[in-house]
Simulated assay, not measured.
Amino acid sequence: MKRLLAWLCAVLSAIGITACDYFNLRELKPGESTAAEVRERFGPPQMEWRNADGSVTWEFTRQPEGTECFMITIGPDEILRSVEQVLNEQNFARVVNGMSGDEVRRLLGKPARSQFFRLKRETVWEWKISNGPDGTSDPVFFTVSFNTDGRVTGTGRYTQYRR
């Protein structure tokens, strides 16, 4: 039964339904859980980042409809080291002018959307970071603007007001 629940949660997560994340995260224990257990609960990562110390960080984004992106680090011994929800104020503050798109992706995960504005000659990536103050309306987005060289030129936020 536990295996069926894990499989169902992985399938729902893959299509953007994140209610199972709470249960999956509760069962994972840094220093004890294995890479296989992480994959069993979350499925395949959207991106793998190799780290200098031999560990790997797996990206599990819940964008475009969710408001979370988990970076899960697995040590060279295949044991879970850490789980971090990276769409947070500390990481938003770390995005500075001049960063590359790869650096931003590594920090925040895959954006919900990317759009090129021809007249301004800039690309804007956005992440959904909130479903509104009551959790059911007016989603809030964090944005990062890039110049034509692919370097950050600024960040911002906006609320998508519903009519």
Results as ranks from 00 to 15, higher is better:
residue 21 D to C: 12
residue 40 E to F: 02
residue 7 W to Q: 13
residue 154 G to Y: 08
residue 2 K to D: 12
residue 119 L to E: 14
residue 122 E to V: 14
residue 139 P to E: 11
residue 90 Q to W: 02
residue 8 L to C: 07
residue 130 S to Q: 00
residue 148 T to M: 14
residue 92 F to T: 04
residue 125 W to M: 08
residue 21 D to Q: 15
residue 68 E to L: 11
residue 13 S to H: 14
residue 25 L to F: 03
residue 154 G to W: 07
residue 163 R to K: 11
residue 32 E to Y: 06
residue 9 C to W: 00
residue 62 R to G: 12
residue 103 E to A: 15
residue 95 V to M: 02
residue 64 P to K: 05
residue 38 V to E: 02
residue 19 A to G: 14
residue 62 R to Y: 04
residue 79 I to P: 04
residue 126 E to Y: 01
residue 95 V to D: 01
residue 47 M to K: 15
residue 80 L to F: 08
residue 151 R to K: 15
residue 113 R to Q: 09
residue 138 D to T: 11
residue 58 W to D: 01
residue 60 F to T: 12
residue 130 S to C: 01
residue 139 P to L: 13
residue 159 T to P: 08
residue 1 M to D: 09
residue 42 F to R: 03
residue 20 C to N: 10
residue 86 V to G: 01
residue 83 V to E: 09
residue 107 L to Q: 03
residue 112 A to L: 03
residue 113 R to V: 05
residue 126 E to R: 12
residue 64 P to E: 05
residue 128 K to D: 06
residue 67 T to D: 06
residue 101 G to M: 15
residue 3 R to T: 14
residue 139 P to W: 05
residue 37 E to L: 11
residue 103 E to V: 13
residue 110 K to A: 13
residue 2 K to R: 12
residue 12 L to A: 13
residue 86 V to T: 09
residue 125 W to K: 08
residue 62 R to W: 03
residue 72 I to S: 02
residue 5 L to M: 07
residue 23 F to T: 15
residue 72 I to W: 01
residue 58 W to A: 00
residue 11 V to W: 03
residue 41 R to I: 02
residue 83 V to Y: 00
residue 149 D to E: 15
residue 153 T to V: 15
residue 117 F to Q: 10
residue 109 G to K: 00
residue 24 N to Y: 02
residue 35 A to W: 02
residue 42 F to P: 02
residue 91 N to V: 05
residue 48 E to Y: 00
residue 33 S to D: 07
residue 34 T to S: 15
residue 104 V to I: 10
residue 52 A to S: 05
residue 53 D to N: 08
residue 46 Q to K: 10
residue 42 F to V: 09
